[in-house]
């Protein structure tokens, strides 16, 4: 199989996974207005739990330490990743969402993320510390007799289907009365409360769902690349997801898709194998961050709503029988 095809397929998998991250952060920030600066941490929780559950029991004397080691199948390990990310999200939410708003909340999430980063890095027995988990078995390879190349193609399908399901439910949530109430909390938390909306519960729901999305993305990441170490989920990675959502358009899942194509695929992943400029291997990664930063600033200055802005809700797709509405429509047509 042509290596170009495999490389493109790899990019597609990254694209799908970043879409999932984009949807997750959009549910938290775009819907409910939660400034979650620890988003990538929940990706890591999902990824590690998936990995530790999918790996066989640790070999004594191998110098690689991790908990669990259950040799679980893909769906079971994924489920554990989902539950873990959701639970950690709920825990952070419990601290951050009860009383805090915007900037304070952002600082608490950032601190929680840093704390978890330190714990996982330093407690080697958990997920092999700074070295990270590696050698996580690629799912379905045995059952479907896949080689390294066909696995990549197969994983396009797996991640694509999961991404599509998550996109569908994210959109359904947006349009639902629950999503509407979340947006009311985003717009003005006091007013939403004054109209009987339980802001804590609404934000907590958005927080946990967003973290579950992050956890699923994390599980797919480690299942695909078979390894995950703290270097892969530093605070800077949260920034990439924030950049893709803000550039693409917060409040709009299509915006998250456009953003993840531009930021995550075009600038972050596709530039990974460019030849080093002038023999300096760090130049391209540095330039990449500069380009993303500039793109973000330009977007916020000239198109703060993002490339694909949040759409206006149109209730009139549903047939209405209101007498008043008929009259209003008539007046608009006739110009009365």
């Amino acid at each position: 199989m042509s290596p170009i095809l495999v490389y493109l397929a790899t990019l597609v998998v990254y694209f799908f996974i970043y879409n999932i991250f984009g949807f997750g952060l959009n549910i938290q920030f775009g819907y409910a207005g939660i400034l979650d600066f620890a988003f990538i941490t929940f990706m890591a929780v999902g990824g590690y739990l998936y990995g530790a559950a999918a790996l066989p029991h640790e070999t004594p004397g191998s110098q690689i330490y991790y908990v669990l080691g259950l040799s679980w199948s893909f769906p079971l390990a994924l489920l554990l990743g989902i539950l873990g990310a959701g639970a950690v999200g709920a825990l952070v939410g419990l601290i951050a969402l009860k009383r805090l708003r915007s900037d304070y909340l952002a600082i608490v999430t950032l601190a929680s993320g840093t704390l978890i980063y330190g714990v996982i890095g330093n407690f080697t027995r958990l997920f092999d510390g700074w070295e990270g988990l590696m050698g996580v078995p690629q799912p379905f390879t045995g059952a479907l007799n896949l080689n390294a190349n066909t696995f990549v193609l197969f994983f396009v399908l797996v991640s694509g289907v999961i991404m599509a399901i998550l996109w569908f439910f994210a959109n359904r949530l947006y349009r639902s009365p629950l999503g509407r109430a979340m947006r009311a909390v985003r717009e003005d938390i006091d007013v939403a409360e004054a109209y009987g909306k339980n802001a804590f519960k609404l934000r907590m729901t958005a927080m946990v769902i967003g973290c579950i999305y992050a956890g699923i993305g994390g599980a797919l990441t480690i299942a695909f690349i078979t390894a995950l170490a703290p270097a892969g989920w530093s605070t800077g990675e949260t920034f990439v997801i924030w950049a893709l959502l803000l550039i693409g358009g917060r409040g709009n899942n299509l915006g998250a898709v456009v953003g993840s194509f531009l930021v995550a695929v075009l600038f972050t992943e596709a530039t990974r194998y460019l030849p080093a400029i002038g023999g300096n291997p760090n130049l391209i990664p540095d330039l990449r961050n500069i380009v993303i930063g500039v793109l973000l600033i330009v977007t916020l200055r000239f198109r703060p709503q993002g490339l694909v802005p949040e759409p206006k809700t149109n209730f009139f797709a549903v047939p209405l029988t209101s007498r008043v509405l008929r009259r209003v429509r008539h007046e608009e047509v006739v110009g009365a």
């Binding site: 009365p177 999503g179 003005d188 007013v191 209730f315």
Partner: peptide, 28 residues
């Protein structure tokens, strides 16, 4: 203190009390 980035109609619809679609199960 209107919900600025919601339409006028949405501003009204959202405040109606007792919407069963505000539960996660029904919403999804």
């Amino acid at each position: 203190r209107e919900f600025a980035r919601m339409t006028v109609l949405e501003n009204l619809v959202v405040v109606a009390r007792g919407q069963s679609g505000e539960s996660l199960f029904n919403a999804l």
